[in-house]
């Protein structure tokens, strides 16, 4: 299995998958578009959600990043009765739910593509990828999409790094 095949699989399905995951969590609709680069995609934020989907032949490490401003705005709107910190934690948890949905579906698509039922996903994790902890994904080994809800000034980014066994 070539990385480019898995990359196309993700690229062709990601916007639909993200919107599927969003529907169970947020009421806003987001427009998604690929980030174009010849070099590297950078994942850099104090709050990054990551999750691994893997099959015997491939692995997809996905990253979900939402800017703090967007999280604060969402928290205020969705959970007006909660203190700021608690609302922020719940927004992070809601975002993890979206990532989890996407990873589950990517694992399922991988199993179909490779005709291998043994795909797995790890639980989503929260990490600090700021400053020197930022990671770079080579463009030929990954995908990156930006999603925006312009009327509400909300945005997030989804990046994935793909590795396959030749």
């Amino acid at each position: 299995m070539k990385e480019s095949v898995v990359k196309d699989l993700i690229g062709n399905n990601l916007v639909r998958l993200i919107n599927g995951g969003l529907q169970g969590v947020y009421t806003d609709s987001y427009a998604g578009k690929p980030v174009k680069t010849e070099g590297f995609y950078t994942v850099q934020s104090p709050v990054v959600l990551s999750q691994l989907a893997l099959s015997p032949a491939s692995q997809i490490l996905s990253f979900f990043t939402m800017e703090t401003d967007s999280m604060v705005r969402l928290g205020k709107r969705m959970l007006p009765d909660k203190p700021r910190e608690e609302a922020l934690k719940l927004v992070i948890s809601a975002n993890a739910e979206i990532l989890n949905f996407v990873s589950s579906r990517l694992a399922w698509l991988l199993s179909k593509l490779e005709n291998m039922p043994d795909t797995e996903i790890s639980p989503p994790k929260v990490g600090n990828f700021s400053g020197s902890q930022a990671i770079r994904i080579r463009a030929e080994e990954g995908v990156c999409f930006e999603f925006a809800c312009a009327p509400q000034k909300l945005a997030f980014r989804f990046a994935a790094c793909i590795q396959t066994v030749a």
């Binding site: 969590v25 719940l90 927004v91 948890s93 809601a94 993890a96 739910e97 989890n100």
Partner: peptide, 8 residues
């Protein structure tokens, strides 16, 4: 559920 949002 490991998602606090989901348990809520």
């Amino acid at each position: 559920d490991d998602s606090k949002f989901q348990t809520m």
